[in-house]
């Protein structure tokens, strides 16, 4: 479903700030794969996701989604195939617009936007049903401005928007990192449910090893722009945090301990 082939990216090449963010990354996801991505700060996790989303062009390599080479497509054109949720709850939704308007924007992703109504009565009824599933009471606040919602509510809404049109790949960029632990858990549960129900191919970055092990059917760990650990299936189910740290040390040749963020459980 998703193929990242020999992708390389260097920021600020030829300057003192040169940073090799991705070094010859290759990754293949089958349909329905739920891959969690873990790694320290600057490991290249977000860069990899942004390469798939087309936020900036790759230096080398190709990105193929369901057989379609999207390497040269601008971000807004690739959006047709992708659902995205960001780390910052402010990024994924338009605060000045209503809940239903945000959903209606997402429902038209990848379609030509014409002079037809931006939202119809039929859609409103559908959105009400969809919002009920979240269990956050948003179904009664369809015309409320999104800016009035809490961070967790906004992330849940963004998730709904991202999955509304059944994307070929769902990209989650630490989408619970800015939430309090309780809300983060709730949003993760909703995520798992939506992904399972729609059998979505998913790439989820997390800072939390525990979540990385608990969710998904495959786990990859990145370090200095490379994928250094790739565990799947039964092996992943049995995985513990200690084993994960060991695997990391073996393959990267360095200690993990210095990176506090990744050790959060």
């Amino acid at each position: 479903m998703l193929d990242i082939k020999n992708v390389e990216k260097t920021f600020n090449p030829g300057t003192i700030n040169e940073k090799k963010a991705l070094c010859d990354i290759s990754l293949h996801l089958d349909k329905g794969d739920f891959v969690t991505v873990i790694g320290g700060n600057g490991a290249g996790k977000s860069t990899m996701l942004n390469m798939v989303a087309g936020v900036y062009p790759v230096d080398h390599g190709r990105v193929v989604i369901d057989g379609i080479d999207v390497t040269r497509l601008p971000e807004y054109k690739r959006a047709k195939y992708l659902g995205r949720v960001f780390q910052d709850p402010m990024t994924g939704t338009a605060a000045d617009m209503q809940i239903e308007e945000n959903l209606a924007l997402a429902a038209r992703r990848g379609k030509r936007r014409t002079l037809r109504p931006g939202i119809t009565a039929k859609e409103r009824a559908e959105y009400r049903e969809l919002l009920k599933i979240l269990g956050l009471g948003l179904e009664n606040r369809l015309t409320a401005k999104v800016g009035l919602l809490s961070g967790g509510q906004r992330q849940a809404l963004t998730l709904l928007m991202a999955t509304l049109m059944s994307p070929k790949v769902l990209l989650l960029d630490e989408h619970t990192a800015a939430l309090d632990p309780k809300t983060a858990k709730k949003v993760l549960e909703i995520t798992d449910e939506i992904v399972a129900r729609n059998n979505l191919t998913t790439l989820m970055i997390t800072h939390n090893m525990h979540d990385a092990i608990q969710y998904g059917n495959r786990l990859i760990m990145m370090h200095e722009g490379r994928i250094v650990v790739d565990v799947r299936g039964e092996e992943k189910k049995q995985l513990t945090i200690e084993q994960l740290l060991q695997l990391f040390e073996q393959s990267s040749g360095s200690k993990f301990g210095s990176d506090k963020a990744i050790l959060s459980k």
Partner: peptide, 22 residues
């Protein structure tokens, strides 16, 4: 309209708009 909503979204949030194919 759909076009008008896309215009409003562009002003409200550029990242979100691009992620929604605008």
């Amino acid at each position: 309209t759909e076009m008008g909503c896309a215009l409003r979204a562009t002003g409200a949030n550029l990242n979100m708009s691009r992620a929604q194919g605008i």
